[in-house]
Simulated assay, not measured.
Amino acid sequence: MAMAHRPRAVGDTPWVRRTLIGAGLLLTLLFLLAPVAVVFVQAFQAGLAAYFSNLASPDTLHAIWLTVLTAVVVVPVNVVFGIAAAWAVTRFAFRGKRLLVTIIELPFSISPIVAGVIYLFLYGAQGLLGPWLQEHGIRIMFSIPAIILVSLFVTSPFVARELIAFMQTQSSEDEEAARSLGASAWQMFWRVTLPNIRWALLYGAILCTARSIGEFGAVSVVSGNIRGQTNTLPLQVELLYNDYNAAGAFAAASVLALIGLVTIVIKALVEQFGPEAHDRRA
């Protein structure tokens, strides 16, 4: 019996494939790999001693600490918010569901700079809530709380969006079976729902972490760019570069680039061992 041949697509010739693959590789090298390589080359140009000396600068260490602190606070809050939002959208029918989904995705359509200005108008000294906050001795703008609040805003859709899309493709049969067997809502969540959504939850948390660490625009508005106090790592890179300290700027930038590369690796591992990969192997 003759083997069936896959019909050839229009333009599917060896030279077309090679041209497209070559163009894709060339663009990847020029626009993605080359800039990352330049960051590391410039960071280590003066040697390892100078590199670690630049990273050990008190202002840079404080920027790294503040960036990590922001992610440590922001990611768990967004995980809880994402689970609650996805549960409400995918498991209940109610008026205004589409409006709720639109509101959840609103930070995607708002420029980070605009988000920072909104918080400035809300909590600044001349803002809507500013006078009341001053009367009660509460300071939000140009401080760590402002950085955390605005980071929460710009990263809030990541976990929720991943979970909503994933849970909409799943049926609620397992949860209904657990309830029929007498499981409480808490038991059903921990033993049925959470194991089923763990990969999508992890994927959303990874994206949320990367965005929180790399956020620049919104944080630059609300932080005040106070040296050694409210500068996160992206802001510290800009500060060092403006101070004509290129070695220090590239050293700090290399930390951000390394975090980005680690994020890509973890994301690839999640995609490889997640449910989609399991379905392909099955």
Rank of each mutant, 00 (worst) to 15 (best):
L27R: 00
S53C: 10
L66Y: 09
T60S: 05
F40L: 06
P58W: 12
L29V: 12
G24S: 09
A43V: 02
T19L: 15
V10N: 01
P35E: 04
P14W: 06
V38M: 12
T13Q: 09
G24D: 06
L20C: 09
V41F: 11
D12C: 03
L48G: 14
F44H: 03
G22H: 12
A50N: 04
A34G: 07
S57N: 14
V10L: 12
A71G: 10
N54G: 10
V68K: 07
R17C: 07
Q42L: 14
W15R: 11
T13G: 09
A37Y: 08
A56I: 01
T13A: 10
A43L: 05
L55R: 01
F44T: 05
L66R: 08
L32K: 02
A23F: 10
A23P: 03
F44S: 05
F31S: 07
T28M: 13
L69N: 00
F52S: 03
A46N: 12
L66Q: 09
L55E: 00
P14N: 05
T60W: 08
R17E: 10
Q42S: 15
R17F: 11
F44W: 11
L20N: 01
P14V: 05
L30Y: 06
L27Q: 03
Y51G: 02
P14K: 04
N54K: 14
G11W: 05
V41I: 13
R18K: 09
L33F: 11
L61S: 07
F52R: 00
V10I: 13
A37D: 00
Q45A: 14
R17S: 12
T70Q: 09
T70P: 00
L20S: 06
H62E: 14
T70K: 06
Q45L: 10
D12S: 07
A37R: 02
L69P: 00
T28C: 13
